[in-house]
Amino acid sequence: MINYILRRVVTSVVLMIIISVVTFGVFFMVPKLAGTNPAELYVGKSATPADVAATARKLGLDQPVYVQYGRFVKGIVAGRDFNSGPSKTHCPAPCFGYSFRNDRPVFPLLLDRLPVTISLAIGASIIWLIGGVLAGVISALRRGSILDRSMMILALAGVSLPIYFTGLLAQLIFVHNLHWLPGGEYVNFRDNPIGWASKLLLGWITLALLYAATYARLTRATMLETVSEDYIRTARAKGLRERVVIGKHAMRSVLTPIVTIFGLDIGQLLGGAILTESVFGLPGIGRLSIDAVNTKDLPVVLGVTLFGALFIVVANFVVDLLYAVIDPRVRLA
């Protein structure tokens, strides 16, 4: 078991290093391929070529890529100084770059936005996990019934309708027409829990709908497969009540694929969150990245990308651990 965990940790770290090298390389190469000097992105439009060159030198952008990567990594560990303009700018560890547009290091920028994204993700995932799995189990047990069919049609609609459609529609109906939910700015949970929840509610539901559909279909399929397994027949032959046969024996097996895609989905949620956050005006990481792309704020884009990758790698790591908890064949292999 210890061995298993250690192996997973090492794999995750190696993966993260590779991702950071590739990402860094891409961000280094893209401006070059586009024929622009990355330093141009840091100076005003009216800057002279001499200004650009000076900025490039100060930011180290004239150095070869491996030197820049080395400095970047060193910044993460020990912090880093940028000699931008007349003054020296300090970026404390962990330094994932410095956003000159926002005049702040990237890391605290991300940290600021993180609670919003996490609130969105956790709320939505609770709804879709419970809703999707429940719908899938009921569908499987009532296979072929009207309930089953309507739920599966709903699920199909759920996966096929894009967030900006369902999101905007929901916003239009519940916020603008019915006035059931407030518009306006996002508020912190600590300041106003009810305001926080009602601002996030539509986002949760829209995002959950998208994922719940997949979960319902997966749960239904796995459940149908599982109930015809020999060991379910054995459970019945022991005289167990149907409730226990389904709720304990079958659910235990259905859980495995659910945990797997849940881990992957949580990792990729950032993608879903970008759309959801912009549709519902939530100031999370997703919005930050859109703003950064719009303003060509490269350090922030790089930071968000790496952060997203980290999210995925960690989620995968957690899934691997959960696997071992769930499946003794993995744990004891």
Partner: peptide, 12 residues
């Protein structure tokens, strides 16, 4: 049952 591998629950 016939096949003891599939007739027992793998997770318990």
């Amino acid at each position: 049952f016939q096949d003891p591998l599939t007739a027992m629950h793998p997770y318990f």
